[in-house]
Computed example of a mutant assay.
Amino acid sequence: MRKRIAIVTGATGGIGKEFARLLMKEPVDEIWAVARNQEKLELLKSEYGEKVIPLSKDLSSTKDLCEIGELLEDTKPVVQYLINNAGLAKMGSYKDFTLEEIEKTINVNCKAPVMLSNLCIPYMEKGSCILNISSASAFQPTPYINLYAASKAFERSYSRALNVEVASLGITVTAVCPSWVDTEMLEKEINGHKVKFPGLVTAKAAAEQAMKDAKRGKDMSVCSFYVKCQHLYVKLMPQKLSMKIWMNELKKYL
């Protein structure tokens, strides 16, 4: 009998670790936990048990992504869940980014989810789910996190379109679009100012809502009333105005 697996990228912290925790309760034989830091992966395994299979991979590398494909080919499992959670985020002006940072952000946030989806779909069955962790910043252009927001807009659009393509296979693809999530990625202070994060939610809340929505067959998941309101008003409001409001809130940190 083919074993059932879940794959979680960025599995050692934040939302990724919460997904790993939730997957321990799911009917899967293994959880392939993907991250760069081998030590953190081993800590995850020691905390959650033998079900966790640590895979130390750099998701900005095509070679490492293809190695995951080779593992799938060798083991031929049923992929019950693919959770593309790994992501890079940096707040700042376009001038603050090196070319290497730009390339790495696009590779991790855009290329990796697409490649892993294509690698995993042949091993999926009816009821399998892909969850791509996008962001509420995907709803509109967002200055000073422009690269991150644009990459998440790509991920949201890709996910919803792919969901239509694989519907006949019984596979669900969900774009997970939380707003601010309380993880180590958030900069708590900028230029001496403590940052306020409206609508802040825990990683646990975001992951639990995402799993519920994926099981319900939704192509998009939001985890709070705040984000639902945000999604509505950016539909109704001119994008130039939404960017002006954002910049007004941001100016004290610049």
Rank of each mutant, 00 (worst) to 15 (best):
L116V: 02
I145V: 10
V114F: 10
V195S: 08
Y158H: 06
F197N: 04
A161V: 13
V8R: 01
A210N: 01
W246S: 06
S151K: 03
S168N: 13
I15A: 00
R21T: 08
Q140H: 09
T98M: 06
A11N: 06
L119R: 02
P113C: 06
L162I: 03
W180H: 06
I53W: 12
P198A: 12
A136C: 06
A11E: 06
M185H: 09
I31H: 05
A86I: 09
I5L: 09
K251V: 11
C120K: 00
Q209G: 03
K17W: 02
V8Q: 01
K188Q: 15
M185I: 15
I7C: 07
F19S: 06
A214Q: 06
M237C: 14
S61A: 13
M124Q: 00
I31V: 15
A153K: 04
N163S: 13
V34D: 02
L22C: 10
V114E: 02
V114W: 04
Y148I: 07
E208K: 14
K3E: 11
G69F: 06
E189L: 08
I190T: 02
A149H: 00
V195K: 11
G127N: 08
K95L: 14
V79K: 03
P198F: 14
K17R: 14
L65I: 15
V114N: 01
S179A: 10
M1A: 11
D74A: 15
V201I: 15
L116Y: 10
E189R: 11
Y226H: 12
D58E: 13
P27C: 11
P178I: 10
K212Y: 14
S137M: 01
E208D: 11
I190S: 03
Y233H: 12
N163F: 03
S61G: 13
A149Q: 01
K152D: 00
V222Q: 10
K252N: 07
R2G: 00
K152E: 02
N146R: 01
E67N: 09
G49L: 11
K152Q: 03
G49Y: 10
C229V: 14
K218W: 08
G49Q: 08
V181R: 04
A207Y: 03
D64I: 14
S168I: 11
V173N: 03
G170N: 03
G87Y: 07
G69E: 04
Q209D: 08
I31R: 02
G14V: 00
G49H: 10
S224H: 04
K204E: 14
N248D: 12
L41H: 05
M237T: 15
Q239V: 12
A210G: 04
M1C: 08
L41T: 09
M237K: 09
L99T: 08
S159L: 08
P198S: 12
K218S: 07
S60N: 10
E70H: 11
A35M: 03
S56H: 01
P27Q: 11
V222K: 09
K104Y: 06
N84E: 05
M211I: 15
W32R: 02
K57L: 15
K218M: 12
A214M: 08
K45Y: 05
F225K: 15
S159T: 03
S135V: 01
T62H: 13
I133L: 13
K251R: 15
K76C: 12
R156S: 11
E73S: 14
G92M: 07
I53S: 12
K25Y: 12
T142D: 00
I121V: 15
S137C: 03
K90S: 09
K215E: 14
A175P: 03
L236K: 12
P113W: 04
K111R: 14
A206C: 11
S137G: 00
N118M: 11
Y226S: 09
